[in-house]
């Protein structure tokens, strides 16, 4: 991928910290951010909102035939995750084997490398999701 750095740099906040938008007119939340609320259109009142990186797997697949730049990673799990706050996101599921993922599985965000622009280009980071840890598992 030979895309220049600005293309993805300008999305850094959403990619790093799951910033979406919320429409104050209809209360709908969108991720990724939009400039217009598709329901309210001219009456849109959008403001930035940081979404909580928690949700559940709505559906998933295991990619075995990868596009350029992902050949070394196969097999990897891609999923649509429905965030607790409503929006759905496409994401890789990591720290999970292909035979462990299932619809309805609780997941949480984790910061990972998304892709590299060749051997000498920028490295892009952002959220992926992993199986959620229960609070009780946090302690020693």
């Amino acid at each position: 991928m030979t895309m220049g750095a600005p293309r993805f740099w300008r999305k850094t906040q959403s990619r790093y910290n799951l910033y979406g938008v919320k429409c104050k007119s209809c209360n709908a939340t969108y991720f990724p951010p939009r400039k217009i609320c598709p329901s309210c259109r001219r009456a849109s009142k959008l403001e930035d909102v940081k979404l909580t990186p928690k949700g559940e797997v709505l559906t998933y697949t295991v990619i075995r035939s990868a596009p350029e730049g992902f050949e070394r990673q196969t097999p990897y799990i891609m999923a649509i995750v429905k965030l607790d706050e409503g929006p759905m996101v496409t994401t890789q599921i990591v720290d999970c084997e292909p035979d462990e993922v299932e619809i309805g599985m609780a997941v949480e965000g984790v910061f990972r490398k998304i892709r590299e622009s060749g051997k000498d280009g920028p490295i892009y980071y952002g959220f992926k999701f992993r199986p959620a840890r229960a609070d009780k598992d946090l302690a020693v």
Binding site: T61, E68, V89, T91
Partner: peptide, 28 residues
């Protein structure tokens, strides 16, 4: 490269960028 070209029909920033493929989208 064909795989990568076909996925340009999806959202480049929020699907393709993450390693999504067209068979992947339909598999979902």
């Amino acid at each position: 490269r064909v795989t990568q070209t076909l996925i340009t029909a999806a959202d480049q920033e929020w699907e393709a960028f993450l390693g999504m493929t067209f068979p992947g989208v339909y598999a979902l």
